[in-house]
Design a protein around this nucleic acid. Structure first.
Ligand code: SF4
Ligand code: SF4
Lengths: 146, 146
DNA sequence: TATTTATTAGACTAAAAAGGTCTTTTTAAT
DNA sequence: ATTAAAAAGACCTTTTTAGTCTAATAAATA
C-alpha cells in the first residue's frame, strides 16, 4: 500500500515548478537534476501532467515546462491521482459490484470511510502550503545553489 | 494504492472465524467456499496468520483453523499488515534515509500524518465491531445455509 | 536555410510484485 | 494400513512498475 515512483516524481516536479512560480519556463533537465528524477521518465510523467492541465509543455530548443495552474489550486491528491489513477484502497469501494457483499459489509464501510479521509487529507495539501519550506529545490547537493 | 487480494482474503477468513467464535475449529474448505477464497491460496495466507498468532492450524484428517485471539483484540490493521506488510504510503515515511530531503520536507510530513490517520482508522476497526452485520458468511449463495 | 538542441510519442525492456497452482511430505483420525 | 486434511516450498503466469530507446517533430540560432 504505497505510492509509485511516478507519483512521487510528479509531486517533486510540480513542487519545483511551484517554487519557480506560475508561468515560468523550466527545462526538463533542470527539474530532473534538482529533483533527482530520471529525465526520460519525467518526460512520460509530464505528458500526463499536461493532459490533466497542470503544466504546459514547450517544445523545441529552449523548451521545457510551465506551471499553468496556481499552486493554491493544485493539491497533492490531484497530482498523484493524475499519474497513478484514483486512490481506491479496496476495489469494492469504487466497484461495489465486484463483491456481492458490498451492500451489507461492515468492512466495506470502513474502507469507504478510510478512503474518504485519506483523499481528504491529500486534497487539503495544496502546493501553496507545501511551499512553506524549501523542498526539492536542493535534492542534489548544490551548495552553490542560488 | 490499494489492498492486495491476499490482504482482502485474510480479512474475510478472520471475519468468518470470528463469527464462528474463538476456539472453534473450521476447515479450510469451508472458509474457502463461503468466503470465495481460492483454497490453496488461503493455505499460504493462513500460514502467515498463524505466525502472527491470530489462528492456530490443526493438521491431519478433520484438521482446520482455530481463532486463538478474541475478535475484540484483532483489528483490520493487524490482519492486513500481517499479510501485506506495513502500510507505508510513501517509502520515505518508514525510511527517512531513502530521501535526503525527508528532514525538511513538507510533503513528507503530509505522508506521515496521512499514514497515521489511515492506520488509526484501520486499528480502531476490531473484528468484534465488524461482526455487527453478517458478512462473508454467505458470500456464496447458500440459501440452505444454517 | 541548415544545424542544433529540445521535446513527443510510442515501442520496447527488465525486474518485481501479485495471484495463484502443484507436488511432496507430514500429520492425525478411522 | 488407509484416508483425508494441512504444511512447506517450488513453480508458474500475468500484471505492474520503472524505466530506456528510437524516430519524428519543433523551434531557436548560426
Ligand atoms: S468482503 Fe466486504 S470489504 Fe471485502 S471486497 Fe467484499 S464488500 Fe469489500
Ligand atoms: S521529496 Fe519529500 S515526500 Fe518525496 S520522498 Fe523525499 S522526503 Fe518523501
Amino acid at each position: 500500500m504505497r505510492l509509485t515512483m511516478a507519483g512521487e516524481y510528479a509531486v517533486r516536479a510540480i513542487l519545483y515548478l511551484s517554487h519557480k512560480g506560475q508561468g515560468v519556463l523550466t527545462s526538463r533537465k533542470e527539474i530532473s537534476e534538482h529533483c533527482d528524477v530520471p529525465s526520460q521518465f519525467l518526460a512520460k510523467i509530464a505528458q500526463q501532467l499536461a493532459k490533466s492541465g497542470f503544466i504546459e509543455i514547450l517544445q523545441g530548443k529552449s523548451g521545457g515546462y510551465i506551471l499553468v495552474k496556481q499552486p493554491q489550486d493544485i493539491s497533492l491528491l490531484d497530482v498523484i491521482e493524475s499519474v497513478t489513477g484514483e486512490i481506491t484502497l479496496n476495489q469494492c469501494v469504487v466497484r461495489p459490484e465486484s463483491c456481492k457483499m458490498s451492500g451489507e459489509c461492515t468492512v466495506h464501510e470502513i474502507w469507504v470511510e478510510a478512503r474518504r479521509k485519506l483523499r481528504s487529507t491529500l486534497k487539503q495539501a495544496t502546493f501553496e502550503k507545501l511551499m512553506e519550506k524549501k523542498v526539492c529545490t536542493t535534492i542534489k547537493d548544490n551548495s552553490d545553489n542560488v
